[in-house]
Amino acid sequence: MLETNFLVNYGEEVAILLFGIGFANLLVQKNLIKKIIGLNIMDTAVYLFLAEKGYITGRAAPIVVSGVQEVEAYINPIPSGLVLTGIVVSVSVTALMLSLTVRLYQRYHTLDLDEISVQLRKEGL
């Protein structure tokens, strides 16, 4: 049973792997841009996970085309809705992070957060 589950749910596994990669990047990368890329990988992984969960083979999107069929014919639309909401959130967060990065780069001409801290200490702020 484990093996069948393992083989069938490869999409979710990839999603979790990507999530880990993104998380690690956001945590350990020094370069701010790479951090933001990590953030995006992390968020995208979640969307992949949701999309994988939302899709059931052989079922259609819940859009009525040729009369209402029975419930089993459709997929649950909520995961797709969640993905859309999540994308909106992650876009706004990414934009905010990028704008912060631009500010920091204009002031300190580096993208390395630790180096910025060192410069700040020199400034005595």
Partner: peptide, 21 residues
């Protein structure tokens, strides 16, 4: 000022890790 922007970036990074989880 530089310090608050840096603090904000650090805050954002940790917060995003948290909200990602």
């Amino acid at each position: 000022n530089g310090r608050t922007i840096e603090a904000a970036v650090r805050y954002m990074i940790m917060s995003l890790l948290g909200s990602g989880l």
